[in-house]
Design a protein around this nucleic acid. Structure first.
Lengths: 290, 290
DNA sequence: AACTTCATCTGACTAAAGTCAGATATCATG
DNA sequence: CATGATATCTGACTTTAGTCAGATGAAGTT
């Protein structure tokens, strides 16, 4: 009754029928699923035909016919690419945008329906985030971004909110040595965000200093992404970036209220050292020679 | 970035591709999905042809042909039912059992694979339970069972474990007035279990007494099923059963460490009354006239 | 016994999805 | 500019899924 594999399989059954229900509601728009999928891919901003084909896993002949049927319906227009006339681009016509909006409305209504009948929607969403991150694990990408980009700011906001919850005395960003964004841009440093299908789920900053070392800052993994060993992947990426920048010594500070962080550092070659700054929050300090 | 609907849809995408991957691994056994589904339904103990057809939503013509193709492969045998020769029963042959086991192995391997790459498998499983319960909400059935049945004993075990976690002083079943199972069987009372696709996710007991009232006992909802208003459904079912047994007055006791229970009682017509027993755990007592 | 109802099966059909070999046009390169 | 690589398209085909009308035989009803 409590066999883990049986629980996963119960989940599979539940989810298969929910997904099937969405598919049938799509059929209600009088178009086969294949054509609907292509239309939706285009609506979601994919325009390169080869890219869509690859994304949907379609044969080139089938893809060509599906495009033709959407064109005959007046929903899309295709044109050869200017820089390479072999490739084609597809885009929605006005009617296509209307039809795409109708599919979006169906998807949104289904999502809404699931949420609406649950009185603890936030718990349900957290569970969905956790599972989505676990299932798309191999597709999580680590991207270097500007520390002031939307993705980076979202991660930092979540990071500060979490420190506020975990520190007994709360957390006030303005009291911490807020790293100048400039120091986390190349060539002094960098900022790395982990993305799972458009959702940022983790980050780490590498901050250059003038003291002969660089600092690791703002290591954060979204609650939904914990257990995927993403913290380690982010640290590896930050260390690799540091090596690429010619940095040979790294330091970081952390707090004993974040035991999983301390454990990660200890298990990956970091050595505890005495306090090296007067920031009020950290009480643990580490160093690593690259 | 945090729109709830967008989060549900990200979940949908993640799960669709995982389900699709399992389907393609099933195709690897050289049999179309339709036939594989029928074989698996039979392997999972469904033998009545009409029941399988209904479960899989198949047309009778299609069903007949799929059965024939499995028979031609030597995987199943069908026979008319003894009590009604119009109906047919299907069962696996030896080769069919082997083939079914191969499908089971694929399903189990997929489930294992998801779990294995996650270092916090219990959190992942809890999330899956939550979602499976939410998605199969309409298919949750309330069944009257014997209080000593496997399902009932599972629920009670979970219930006691939860009390142990929630009461500051812990919980020891032997100190509580353990209701005699006889008192929770018809005609004195009953025991109701909420089932979601073979998994018990909640229970409630109606216990007859000789004092002119019956008691509601052991109301429990699995953590994964909270938010589905299952507590209320269980209470409604228990009250309906009480009415059917000619009971006109109900009492129950609870503890202020379970605030959601107290709130449920207050909002459904229960009236707080003075202590009516000397059980050491409860500190809140309610009564309801039917 | 004659009827209606029911579960299953058969034949004839359609739609959708997918496969594959070549045709066509364009691009990159020596 | 000839050559090979690349992206898309076309035609011919197969498989799978599904629909529907009617046949068959058994069960239930009057």
């Amino acid at each position: 009754m409590l066999d883990p594999v049986a629980r996963v399989r119960r989940f599979n059954r539940a989810v298969t029928s929910a997904v099937g229900a969405l598919d049938s509601s799509f059929l209600g728009r009088g178009r086969p699923l294949g054509a609907a999928r292509v239309l939706n891919a285009i609506g979601h901003g994919r325009s390169d035909v080869a890219e869509i084909r690859d994304y949907l896993g379609l044969d080139s002949g089938l893809m060509s016919r599906l495009l033709r049927s959407l064109e005959d319906e007046g929903l899309i227009e295709t044109a050869a690419r200017e820089d390479d006339a072999r490739r084609r681009m597809a885009k929605l016509t006005r009617a296509g945008r209307r039809e795409f909006a109708a599919y979006e409305a169906l998807s949104n209504a289904q999502a809404d329906g699931i949420l609406a009948q649950h009185s603890q929607a936030e718990a349900l969403l957290a569970a969905m985030d956790l599972i989505a991150s676990a299932l798309t694990r191999e597709r999580i990408s680590l991207d270097e971004v500007d520390p002031q980009s939307e993705e980076a700011r979202y991660c930092l906001g979540e990071y500060y909110a979490e420190l506020g919850r975990r520190f007994k005395q709360g957390f006030d960003v303005s009291l911490s040595r807020d790293p100048d964004a400039k120091d986390m841009r190349r060539p002094r440093g960098t900022f790395i965000v982990a993305m799972s299908d458009t959702l940022p789920i983790g980050c780490v900053g590498l901050k250059g200093t003038d003291h002969g070392y660089a600092e690791i800052k703002r290591l954060w993994v979204a609650p939904a992404a914990r257990g995927l060993r993403l913290g380690r992947r982010l640290m590896d990426a930050a260390e690799a970036a540091a090596r690429g920048l010619g940095i040979t010594l790294l330091r970081l500070d952390t707090n004993s209220a974040l035991p999983e962080a301390g454990q990660l550092y200890r298990s990956t070659g970091w050595r505890e050292i005495p306090r090296f700054n007067d920031d009020p929050y950290p009480d643990l300090f580490f160093e690593k020679q690259l």
